[in-house]
Amino acid sequence: MAYSEKVIEHYENPRNVGTLDKNDEHVGTGLVGAPACGDVMRLQIKVSDSGVIEDAKFKTFGCGSAIASSSLATEWLKGKTIDEAEQIKNSMIAEELHLPPVKIHCSVLAEDAIKSAIADFRSKQAAKKALAGQ
């Protein structure tokens, strides 16, 4: 199957590969996987006190489309507020990367990873507030 130029570009020069400290209260981590193909994707965001994503990192073991989808997602996340980040939809990723129908699930995985990183960040913040309120 032929990959689009944009997928190849992200695959060969992935942006923001790496790790953030998952124990940092400003960091949200999303770990998701696609059981049908054995892909695993970790996406992390670091959120400033004003609610802006100042850094994003990913690590994906999977096909080129999964790597490109998560690479693009981290690029888009940086500089966005949490609320803006929640608006990122898999269809936007699939469209940007020209993913064929059989690879749409890779962009779904990236959207799941974003949502799960945000959920992790929010639950950390809620836990912090609960602790402060005691």
């Binding site: 770990l31 998701v32 996987g33 696609a34 059981p35 049908a36 193909c37 695993v40 970790r42 690590k59 073991f61 699930h105």
Partner: peptide, 22 residues
């Protein structure tokens, strides 16, 4: 069976596979 039909992998399995692959 296939992409959307199957249950999501458990967090433990994902964590482990991420570590082993690294």
């Amino acid at each position: 069976v296939g992409e959307t039909a199957e249950p999501k992998p458990s967090p433990d399995l994902l964590m482990e596979m991420m570590e082993r692959r690294e």
